[in-house]
Design a protein around this nucleic acid. Structure first.
Lengths: 166, 166
DNA sequence: TTAAACTTTCAAATATTTCTGAAAATAAAT
DNA sequence: ATTTATTTTCAGAAATATTTGAAAGTTTAA
């Protein structure tokens, strides 16, 4: 397979994966494009390569910066802004875990906390409280594990995986 | 908080969580509704409680059955179908992990396999191959870990978490 | 200054996803 | 066989999400 074909295939697949995880397609594609680019790219180059408008490129590049997945590189003597993706895949995974935890796990923990201990008696109430308790327990454990992963270095995680897989 | 208010809050929160993970809101809400219902519900009851149409209810109940998250219960002497959610939260998590692995992790592994070993030389090609290699390594590890989790019993996972959290 | 290069914004257009409701299909009872 | 109960389907409607592109904003250079 030729390089250009392989790149296109990867960008396309990454975009699809992103959208099935609630991340918009273009954002994932820009990320993929920057991951496979040796040098940083300008907004113009991103627009050209992905055939998208300036507004779209700008908006998604900013979203990627918010997620901490790409950085703005200032090339001396150049006015244009260049963008570069973090290339360490473990760091990328940790960064994504961090953002999703903050945006999604934490809100559900808050709700579970709020609905805990419903007034009244009866099977319905008992069942509800038991279920919410289990869910909070589970979600809390997931949260703690994510924290550990987010703080970990690659080596720690690798060792842990070896343990898990033994 | 009253039971009905708490249920509504949970159903709403679960729906929102679902949609940020690429699962449609109604599907998540039906799942939540069945999780907090002591007894199985009919399509009619689901429609009433969530204020949704028959078509919508039917389609999402089937999707939940495809995911293995709810089952059809046949009540003797009744013609209507009743639906019930699995109440063991670890089992629910394992089932979701299983489906998402099949639908999302496996396709990306296939693509990574396809784009591996691009022809040609130069920094671009080397960088691309290195990056795809890292990604495949990472994704493969995630895949293996998911497998382990899917096959695990609650007790195994609980013990592992304790180890991770020590 | 003024002009040129570049970035950001946002209202409207487009695309995608989800939902409705009535009709068709199926299954059970009479 | 006919009626009644229930489920499924699916075309069109509605709701959401994404994208465009042109205008406004900003920064740097001359």
């Amino acid at each position: 397979m030729e390089l250009e074909e392989a790149k296109a295939k990867f960008i396309q697949a990454w975009g699809t994966l992103g959208s099935s995880w609630g991340i918009n397609r273009t954002m994932s594609q820009i990320h993929a494009l920057l991951i496979v680019s040796v040098d940083p790219l300008t907004t113009e180059e991103i627009m050209d390569q992905l055939k998208i408008s300036r507004g779209n490129a700008n908006m998604n590049v900013r979203a990627l910066m918010d997620w901490g997945l790409i950085t703005k590189e200032l090339v001396p003597g150049e006015r244009k802004e260049y963008f570069q993706a973090g290339k360490d895949i473990w760091q990328v995974a940790r960064q994504i875990a961090k953002e999703r935890k903050r945006r999604e796990v934490e809100p559900i923990l808050e709700v579970l906390d709020q609905v805990k201990e419903v007034k009244g008696t009866g099977a319905e109430v008992d069942e509800f409280n038991r279920m919410m308790g289990e869910l909070e327990d589970f979600t809390g454990k997931a949260d703690t594990t994510l924290d550990k992963f987010i703080r970990s270095d690659e080596n720690w995680f690798y060792k842990t995986l070896l343990t898990l897989m033994k």
